[in-house]
Amino acid sequence: MPTFIFDGRAVPFEHGQSIAAALIGAGVITLRRTRRRNRPRGLFCGIGVCFDCLVCVDGTANRRACLVAAREGMVATMQSGTGLDDLGD
């Protein structure tokens, strides 16, 4: 089974599965922490409408985990805040 990396952990997926689906299948349901109150969030609408499942994928923040298809070797991380902290103020 192919895998991608999420927060350093190898997550298996089936061809065509989204990042969110593979993570939920592996028992990971917290995908980001909010920028104002640092609250955990996971997949909510599942169809790309609500933007709650935002993660960083291969260095790009704010990707909707429910829409981005998992790929072998992809490196994703939980998004904290805006996901753009490395840009500074």
Partner: peptide
């Protein structure tokens, strides 16, 4: 309603129908 593990019914369906995942 913002806790992880609370999702829309459509989201639950899309995971099942489109990705074969029971959430």
């Amino acid at each position: 309603w913002d806790l992880p593990g609370v999702l829309t019914v459509g989201g639950l369906q899309s995971l099942l129908k489109g990705h074969g995942v029971l959430a």
